[in-house]
């Protein structure tokens, strides 16, 4: 939420309303992947926002001296004045219940399979492309604290994302207990048109339409970055002679380990975001808040596979944090996810 500078005709600047919101997202993500070739897979993902909660945590920076009260407006002075003008103090907001985000389509080609040298070196290399179908909804422009469900609102990847990745395994040296990975990526965000608020719900705070136009355009700027990861197998576990391997223990030993741990570090550079409306000073005010920046993301993961014990499924939990290593000009989001994977073949 952007700071709102308040001016009173004949009274100068009343002050600036600031907002440092706390927000929570509950999201369900369903993904379906399919192997077209052994080294070419495609997938589709459906992120559904179950609920979003926002507490705007409003603050106040006093403005000019007000002769009628003998001092600048305090926060309480301002909201009492605003109430007389029909503008209540915005409270918390809960919404996006069961609202679809942008559907993601993806494809991954492990092109290193075409070259024996990669296999001999224990290196895999792939090219992945993800594209978002704009099925998410932007925030209600008339709400002070609302947020939307588009890819840009969620800010975890671009609308078009290209990844070049490499993995190194150590099958002989370390009994296949370690995988190291490197990924470089470029995420594109396309320009987005947004509806200007008309002051329907917040007549004093959100009434830009008369001077910036009915709509405005945002060019969010692209993401560039890289990730490094390590996957470790601390516990392979027993290999039971279950129905999965038809009682063959040797086959069971080839199944995934019961516990696998991973850590991923991602550096993401954020470009400047640009605003385009009918009123350039308003655009510049927005752009001052969306300068270039970067974020440092750490993801810790644990995967539990039960194939060796006769159950063909995998459970995983991850903790993703961008507050542990500070970034700049970014929304510091943390997330915990739990999920399951189930492989299937229908013929």
């Amino acid at each position: 939420m952007d700071p709102i500078e308040r001016y009173e005709p004949g009274g100068g600047k009343q002050g600036t309303i600031t907002a440092h919101p706390d927000a929570e997202y509950d999201i369900f993500v369903a993904r379906l992947q399919y192997g077209i070739l052994d080294n070419l897979s495609v997938g589709i993902g459906f992120p559904v926002v179950l609920r979003t909660f926002v507490d705007p945590v409003l603050g106040w920076i006093p403005g000019d001296y007000q002769p009628q009260i003998g001092r600048p407006y305090s926060e309480q002075d301002f909201w009492e004045w605003a109430a007389d003008m029909g503008q209540g103090r915005p409270g918390t907001w809960t919404g996006n219940r069961g609202r679809l985000s942008d559907i993601v389509l993806g494809a991954r080609l492990r092109w290193s399979d075409w070259f024996d040298a990669f296999d001999k070196a224990g290196v895999g290399a792939s090219l992945s492309i993800y594209g978002a179908i704009p099925t998410g909804k932007p925030a209600d422009p008339e709400e002070v604290a609302a947020v939307g469900t588009t890819m840009w609102d969620l800010s975890f990847q671009g609308q078009l994302s290209i990844h070049l990745s490499f993995d190194k395994t150590f099958k002989r040296e370390l009994d296949d207990r370690l995988t190291l990975g490197l990924d470089v990526f470029y995420d594109v965000f396309f320009e987005q048109e947004r509806t200007s608020p008309r002051g329907v719900k917040n007549p004093l705070l959100l009434n830009y339409a008369p001077y910036i136009g009915d709509t405005y355009t945002i060019d969010p700027g692209d993401f560039t970055g890289f990730s490094v990861r390590a996957d470790v197998v601390p516990y392979r576990g027993p290999a039971w002679d279950t129905w999965i391997t038809k009682g063959d223990v040797v086959m069971a030993n080839r199944l995934p380990p019961i516990i696998a741990l991973s850590v991923v570090y991602t550096f993401t550079h954020l470009q400047q975001s640009y605003w385009y409306s009918d009123y350039e000073p308003w655009d510049w005010d927005r752009e001052k808040l969306w300068k270039p920046g970067y974020k440092n993301i750490l993801v810790f993961g644990a995967t539990f596979s039960f194939f060796r014990l006769g159950a063909p499924l995998q459970l995983y939990v991850t903790y993703r944090t961008s507050t542990l290593i500070p970034g700049k000009n970014t929304r510091a989001a943390d997330a915990i996810s739990v999920g399951l994977r189930l492989p299937l073949k229908f013929w």
């Binding site: 706390d22 929570e24 997202y25 509950d26 999201i27 369900f28 993500v29 369903a30 993904r31 379906l32 992947q33 399919y34 192997g35 077209i36 070739l37 052994d38 080294n39 070419l40 991954r108 080609l109 492990r110 290193s112 895999g124 290399a125 792939s126 990844h163 990745s165 490499f166 993995d167 395994t169 296949d176 995988t179 990975g181 490197l182 990861r229 996957d231 197998v233 392979r236 080839r254 995934p256 380990p257 696998a260 995967t303 596979s305 995998q314 995983y316 989001a333 943390d334 997330a335 915990i336 996810s337 739990v338 999920g339 399951l340 994977r341 189930l342 492989p343 299937l344 073949k345 013929w347």
Partner: peptide
Amino acid sequence: STAMGAGFTETLKAGTFLIDASYVKAW
């Protein structure tokens, strides 16, 4: 025997599906 879901370059065997469902709490 590698961990399914490990690394950046993993692909599925031809003709197979993988269903993945997760709940995410972000703040």
